[in-house]
Simulated assay, not measured.
Amino acid sequence: MFRKLRNRLIFINLSITSLVILVVFASIYVISTHSANHRPPMPENSTNYSGEVEELIEDRIQNEKNIAARELLVMLIVSGIAIDLIVAFVSYYLAEEAIKPVREAYEAQKVFIANASHEIKTPLAAIAANLEAADIKDNKWISNVEKETAKLTELNGELLSLARTDLITDVSMKEVDLTELTEKSLESMKPRMIGIKFEKGIVATGKIKINAADFIQILEILVDNAIKYSDKRIDLTLNSHELIVANDGATISEKDLPHIFERFYQADKSAEGVGLGLSIAKSLADRNGWGLTVENRDNKTKFTLKF
């Protein structure tokens, strides 16, 4: 994120500098060559030369003008490149200094979220355990507490997962049977798919080297999102380099599509959750160098993971 910001600042500085250099140097070149080519004619009372000699002198002068113009052009180009290089180095330094406080604050925020989420996890688990142990039935107040505790536990888990994604940059690769791994993960999600037609198109992938933990987490996030928003059907396609999850629910509006992977962004404000799931999936994909995209196609919302 900060690398993109730094590069953008450098690009803006270089673009402005290059434009100014181009305009100024072009003006210098045009003015200089124009002045050289429009010198006043020799006075009438000047020494008279024969036609041949006069023509020779004119050719010599014109030749010197052309040489001078070329030398000026080369000098301006070299000077422009040198100035651009200097500006690039200075811009890099200034951009790094400008985003340094923001980066430090962001890193501190990530550590805080990770630590806070970890600390909150224990009391939430204790509350849930005590509610279960109390075994109080048909009490709406207790039911409300259980429901809100479950929401807090889910939110806390997402925050912790997001913080870990930001803090842990190492990618653990291992050889796995992706088909078998996917089938096991989907089996655990079947109870939530009651009433939904789930169509699988899994091509036997054999064993491939991949970050299995991140792949499964992305898979579960995408399927979970499809379950939430589908009407009657979810389609899943998997091969050795691509995962596609599509649902037949209401498609995402064009104005929301560019923001769908942003943190805490919710296209459907009435939906449950806080808009972290897809952001986590995108962060995991980026960390592994995978591509995760979304589009509306054939009245379906389609997520594609290329790995």
Rank of each mutant, 00 (worst) to 15 (best):
T179I: 01
A95P: 15
Y106K: 12
I136K: 12
I81Q: 11
I81N: 09
S161V: 01
F112K: 12
S161N: 00
D170T: 07
T153V: 05
P101N: 13
A88G: 11
I99K: 08
A88W: 15
E175N: 08
D170Y: 11
S91G: 14
P101V: 13
K140S: 11
E180Y: 12
K121W: 09
A134E: 05
Q109Y: 14
V90Y: 11
R103I: 14
D138Y: 10
E146D: 04
A150V: 01
A98S: 14
A108N: 15
H118N: 14
E104D: 12
A126S: 02
L159N: 08
S161M: 07
N156M: 06
N144V: 02
D84G: 04
V176K: 05
L160T: 03
K174S: 12
S91N: 12
I127H: 03
F89S: 10
K137R: 12
L152F: 01
A125N: 07
L162D: 07
T165L: 03
I127D: 03
L167A: 07
L152W: 02
I142P: 06
L162W: 00
A134L: 08
M173W: 00
T153I: 02
H118E: 14
P101L: 14
V111M: 11
S117Q: 07
D166S: 00
V176P: 06
D84F: 13
E183A: 08
E175H: 02
A129T: 10
K174Q: 14
E146I: 03
A116G: 05
T153E: 03
T149A: 03
L85V: 09
L124F: 02
N156R: 02
N115R: 15
E158Q: 08
N130Q: 10
A88F: 14
E132V: 08
K137G: 06
L181T: 11
L181Y: 10
S117N: 02
A116P: 01
L85Y: 08
I142N: 11
A125R: 07
I81A: 14
T169R: 11
Y93E: 15
N144R: 04
A114C: 05
A129S: 04
L155H: 07
N144P: 00
A129Y: 04
K151H: 08
T149N: 10
A125M: 12
E146S: 05
I168E: 15
L124H: 04
T149Y: 00
A126E: 02
I120Y: 10
E132G: 09
E119T: 10
S161Y: 05
A125V: 00
I142E: 02
I168F: 05
K110V: 12
D166R: 05
E180R: 08
E158R: 04
E107S: 11
I99Y: 13
L181H: 02
A128E: 03
L162Q: 01
D135W: 04
I120D: 07
K140D: 06
I83H: 05
A105Y: 15
A82F: 10
E146H: 01
L160S: 00
D84A: 14
N139D: 15
A126V: 12
N115S: 12
I168C: 10
E132I: 04
N139E: 02
E158S: 01
A95H: 07
N139L: 06
E183V: 13
E154F: 00
K121P: 04
E183P: 06
I120L: 13
F112S: 13
I136Y: 10
L94G: 07
A82D: 14
I120P: 03
K137T: 09
L94P: 06
K121V: 09
E148Q: 12
